[in-house]
């Protein structure tokens, strides 16, 4: 690993000042799990590593029924998974965070670091988009908020401008009629990262979905909202046929990654399968009896 200066600002203001001062030569260091690897493989060689380790306020997870959930960017995946408020009010998020990677990485990696690294082969983005998450970004000119869906823009690229730091992720208050599911698929059971994942939320209006969010991640460079399928599913009772039709639509609409862990056609096939399954599960239907 190349040499660098390790800076430990005591306040966010100080951190922002450092980021502005060193610009492209600086990297924000959160949990370190991804950044350390990238630095050791020399994919990144920042001269200044700005550790947010002292900014305890960025670890907090707070909930109130009126405003929803606010997760500090430095909250670790295991913090998110174990937080009683997350478990009680956002079980879909708790489940996602508790199933991500492996126990050690969940104890080291942070949700903010995960989002900022913008590696497609991960879990949080699709899940958070489907939950209508927003991100809070602090910068030299103040704070701005962005819908999660606009935060990751490409492979390993986010909407962060130079000098900016992701500080919080917020989720709207839970609604009793809104339900959600998140499923990840591993290419083989021995894999560590998802080859595809799908997140689904909707408002259940007498057994019929409204305000549908259906988001595909990991199989695509950037987690993608499947708008055509969302429209198709809106106000339509989910049957196995409907699930299959929506799944086919999704498989057609995605623009998959093609690499050593799965070619395009394979990823479409997997996305189709897991989409059909999540829809069937959401409707309490058995997808196992017959293939689509």
């Amino acid at each position: 690993m190349r040499e660098f200066e390790f800076l430990e600002p005591q306040t966010l203001t100080e951190a922002l000042a450092m980021m502005s001062e060193y610009e492209d030569d600086a990297c924000v260091y959160a949990g370190g799990t991804a950044l350390l690897l990238a630095m050791r493989q020399r994919m990144l060689s920042p001269g200044f590593v700005v550790s947010l380790g002292k900014l305890d306020e960025l670890r907090e997870i707070t909930f109130n029924p009126a405003e929803g959930l606010r997760i500090g960017a430095l909250a670790r995946h295991s913090d998110v998974a174990r937080a009683p408020d997350v478990q009680a009010h956002y079980p879909m998020l708790a489940g996602m965070a508790g199933g991500l990677a492996n126990p050690q990485v969940r104890n080291q990696g942070t949700i903010g670091g995960n989002l900022c690294y913008a590696d497609p082969a991960t879990d949080p983005p699709s899940c958070l988009i489907a939950m209508d998450a927003e991100v809070t970004i602090a910068g030299p000119g103040g704070e701005r908020r962005l819908p999660m869906r606009e935060f990751v823009v490409d492979f390993f690229t986010t909407a962060l401008e130079p000098g900016e730091i992701l500080t919080h992720i917020t989720l709207p208050p839970p609604r009793p009629d809104r339900t959600g599911l998140y499923r990840r698929h591993l290419r083989t059971p021995a894999e560590h990262r998802p080859v595809a994942n799908v997140a689904l939320t909707f408002r259940d209006v007498n057994g019929v979905p409204e305000d549908v969010r259906l988001v595909i991640g990991a199989a695509v460079p950037v987690a993608q909202s499947m708008t055509r399928a969302e429209d198709f599913l809106t106000a339509r009772a989910i049957t196995l046929d409907v699930a299959a039709e929506a799944a086919a639509m999704v498989a057609e609409d995605i623009d998959p990654i093609s690499d050593g862990r799965g070619e395009e056609a394979f990823r479409r096939q997997v996305v189709r399968a897991i989409t059909r399954r999540i829809l069937a599960e959401a409707a309490g239907l058995n997808w196992k009896d017959a293939a689509a």
Binding site: F6, G32, T33, L36, L37, S51, G53, S78, N102, P103, Q104, V105, N107, Q108, H192
Partner: peptide, 24 residues
């Protein structure tokens, strides 16, 4: 950060020490 042979407990939580700086 895959094999876990370097796992240690930090404040009771298991972590991979190859994915952490001593400074942390």
């Amino acid at each position: 950060g895959v094999c876990g042979a370097c796992s240690v407990l930090v404040d009771g939580d298991v972590v991979k020490s190859c994915l952490s700086l001593a400074a942390q």
